[in-house]
Nucleic acid binder design. Structure first.
Lengths: 228, 228
DNA sequence: CGAGAAATAGTTGACTCTGACTAGTCAGAC
DNA sequence: GTCTGACTAGTCAGAGTCAACTATTTCTCG
């Protein structure tokens, strides 16, 4: 479902959330978000913040409180949360927590087109991905350990734990995929190789004669896959 | 890393991929993508396609081949893949497969702010999410079964298997999180409840006297979490 | 103490995306 | 026989995003 919010950018959610503490001006918000590492969870861009604050103000979720000027610096406008804003925050958060949203990670796109690469090329790339996944996991692990050592309660690290869980699951999946593709008995290996006129990625070299393998591109297969 | 492509939209990747089969006009591409269910893997929007095709043409990855007109209908321009386009396709695909990209799923944002909801509210929402996750998994499962029954080779269903794996991992994670929060011995439950001046979500009601729990908002905790 | 680096605070403009709109065609319902 | 709704094919305005730039002020380090 995911109804359209007046302000759709998730960054706005963070802004609303921080304004529950106290009124702030945009730059302070920017600073706070960055310092708290919220840019790890929310796509954050210094420029977008000003945009988002404007939008929130127009939608009535926050209101201009005062404008002060410190020396010759540009003036800073302090914004405060309104009651509608507080409602929006709760409602939005509830939705995000309870309704899994259908998203489009790039890797899904890659997988859906991976047959266009010959297995001799795809498999090393997948192995490389495994290495990178391991690195990312190690990084997050280190981050969590450091935070815990600093006395941060676990509740404030759930996002990172979640990322870890997802990375681990992806690694397992990729391993399984590689296995499926290299084991000559269990499946795709031979078929995949055939498309590209290659020997199967397993040990045995499977011969299927006179099927003119390279005339059939993997995409043309893909095209027909919902038809028969 | 993820270098900036001249055309960044992943939809362009699909376009390039389909043009390896044969030249097509935009509408045909749109139709084909939809019919093959690629809109499940790639964010797809009829309007964007024309945009993307224009960009690809400007970047030299595809070239106008002919323009024909069928009766009084608007004219259709047929595009063909160029050699640079073929290179771009391979290079991009390799990158997507081998380099995991840092993305921002909405649920990560939700988790990073979840402490702003009292546990009495968050826990039911999480349980609801579990139900929804189950539904989505069942849907995909049904889809895969149907496709397999229709003789689609497994290799063309990897994206869906991947989604399944991710949904399963997320469900496991959410279950673990709920458990962590309701078990009064193992952790966050009491602390979380305290912020909101609630009894702990487990069975026992934990009393910590004179700490004036509601004066401390969870965000103000969050704010300080990288300091000490 | 003075030059340059870094932080402060915000604006701008080029590019992208999305959803709604136009406008003709065709098959089948009534 | 003409009405309706779905399909074909594409355009476009408005909203959103991103990266780069401006212009002060403060810190830093020789």
């Amino acid at each position: 479902m995911a109804k359209k919010r007046k302000v759709g950018n998730v960054l706005a959610l963070a802004v609303l959330s921080y304004l529950t503490q106290r009124p702030m001006h945009p730059y302070e918000l920017s600073r706070t978000l960055r310092d708290n590492g919220d840019d790890r969870s929310i796509k954050f861009n210094h420029g977008s913040l000003y945009m988002v604050v404007q939008q929130l103000a127009k939608a009535g979720f926050i209101a201009e409180q005062e404008t002060n000027r410190d020396g010759q610096r540009p003036e800073r406008t302090v914004y405060a949360l309104t009651d509608t804003g507080r409602d929006e925050l709760r409602d939005w958060l509830r939705e995000l927590v309870s309704e899994p949203e259908y998203e489009f990670p790039h890797f899904v796109a890659a997988l859906s087109l991976i047959a266009a690469l010959p297995p001799s090329e795809a498999l090393p790339l997948l192995r490389q991905r495994l290495v990178r996944l391991g690195e990312q996991r190690a990084e997050i692990h280190a981050m969590i350990d450091k935070a815990v050592a600093d006395g941060v309660p676990g509740l404030f690290l759930v996002e990172e734990e979640y990322r870890l869980a997802m990375l681990a699951a992806e690694a397992t999946f990729v391993e399984g995929f590689i296995h499926q593709s290299t084991d000559p008995d269990t499946g795709w290996g031979p078929i995949w190789a055939q498309f590209h006129g290659e020997p199967a990625p397993g040990t045995r070299s499977q011969r299927t004669e006179s099927q003119s393998p390279q005339s059939q591109s993997p995409q043309s297969q893909g095209t027909e896959r919902r038809q028969s």
